[in-house]
Amino acid sequence: MKFAIVVHGAPYSSAAAQSALRFAGAARERGHELYRVFFYHDGVYNGSSLLAPPQDEPDIAAEWQALSEQGVDLVICVASSLRRGVLDVDEARRYQKSASNLAGGFQISGLGQLIDAALNADRLVTFGA
């Protein structure tokens, strides 16, 4: 079965990211396909390359990175991310910002990617904040 996951919560502010990561791992272990993980609302902060948690806390960025390296599509909503200051190189240039901060493995795209996931995955599972 094809699963799509939506994350609405920022890392460390809510449990959404950890729950979504555990669900994603279990779905893959069960032999399902992860069609996409879509980050919306404060969920876009998961795509920041500047997360620097204390060493004795879970490294959420590394967990997303590991998922990406397994070929999972990690998509940050462009409208949500621009508002909140998570920018890739192109967007930083377009808006004349001094730096970009999108973590590797993530891509910025439009809400069409959420709708596409809703239409083409067999199940859409949302982790709210």
């Binding site: 809400l111 709708i115 809703a118 239409l119």
Partner: peptide
Amino acid sequence: EGLDALLAGSAFA
């Protein structure tokens, strides 16, 4: 942002 998602959805479904 929910309304934005709905407007996006209306283009496809």
